[in-house]
């Protein structure tokens, strides 16, 4: 008898090895129901391997995955929806036929008209899947992930390769799905996407979770400073304030201050010209940089 829990998905000591390579290395995660959980990390961090283990597509080398406190079964799998990072569709089928075919694979499922409306597919229902644009194709794949009215939705790099407009359209749909109370597990290497959509974020690098929490928690814990930058010529002949660590980057000197007001006061007190000042609020990129010494997209 599964125990009652508000945790919808648990990963316990998950590892996946390919020979000597440890793609996933002892990951523990608990994902509460009803949130959008983000798995953020650079390419090759192990995100897709981990999410495919959670989906049941790959078997872990060790560890276990629990859905609502119990081992997964065929019945519980039918309560999950998956949007893979790269998937081809059945050839020579229209959008409507593809949705209908996948819908019929389940005993229960979504109303296809509602689903088409949610994913903005109604106007292209008759179009062949081979004739879709990148954004339309991703929206169809997202609709397929929702065709069985899942409680838990996995979205693996859903906006990769999309132009900014298509990406924002997709984000709007994902926000609609969130508002329906579904749990979303989303992997991305786009910091903005994680910040925009996710309630909780785990940062992954080299097969391990290196930080986990809300955006605020991660920023406070791993990147408490705000950045202030001015052009290098504006610092000519001025002594650097000893209380403000700094480094040069792209023709500017960047100071890191634990408090913005105090940092600005120190710079003014030292006679710096702040007319071309830029403020760099901390973000997940800075968190990743601080934790690993590397950028997310290196």
């Amino acid at each position: 008898m599964p125990r009652q829990t508000s945790t919808i998905l648990q990963l316990r000591q998950i590892s996946k090895h390919y020979g000597e390579v440890r793609a996933v290395d002892g990951v523990d995660l608990e994902i509460p129901a009803g949130i959008c959980f983000g798995l953020l990390g650079p390419n090759g961090a192990g995100k897709t391997t981990l999410i495919e283990i959670a989906e049941g597509i790959q078997a872990p080398t060790q560890g276990e995955v629990l859905f609502q406190g119990a081992a997964r079964t065929a019945a519980t799998n039918a309560r999950m929806g998956i949007m893979f990072q790269s998937t081809a569709l059945l050839d020579f089928m229209s959008v409507a036929e593809t949705l209908a075919a996948f819908r019929r694979l389940y005993d229960h499922g979504a109303d296809l008209e509602d689903l088409s409306a949610l994913c903005h597919l109604s106007e292209i229902a008759g179009r062949r899947t081979t004739d879709l644009s990148g954004g339309q194709r991703q929206r169809l794949l997202l609709a397929l992930a929702l065709v069985n009215r899942p409680e838990l939705v996995f979205l693996d790099e859903p906006s990769t390769g999309l132009d900014p407009q298509a990406r924002h359209n997709l984000w709007a749909i994902i926000e609609d799905i969130k508002s329906q109370g579904k749990t979303i597990v989303l992997t991305t290497h786009y910091m903005e996407e994680a910040e925009h959509l996710c309630d909780t974020i785990a940062i992954m690098d080299r097969g391990r979770i290196i930080a986990n929490g809300t955006v605020d928690q991660l920023l406070k814990a791993h990147c408490p400073e705000v950045g202030i930058s001015i052009p290098i010529p504006a610092t000519a002949g001025r002594a650097m304030p000893p209380d403000l660590p700094s480094h040069e980057h792209n023709g500017r000197v960047k100071f890191l201050a634990s408090d913005l007001n105090r940092g600005l006061n120190l710079l003014l007190a030292n006679g710096f010209d702040l007319s071309e000042l830029q403020v760099h609020p901390p973000n997940l990129e800075s968190v990743f940089l601080n934790l690993t010494g590397r950028h997310l997209r290196e």
Partner: peptide
């Protein structure tokens, strides 16, 4: 070909 381009992986995620 379906296995290579991921169609089968997508079908694996269904009750089929």
């Amino acid at each position: 070909r379906y296995r290579k381009n991921g169609v089968l992986k997508r079908l694996k995620a269904t009750p089929l």
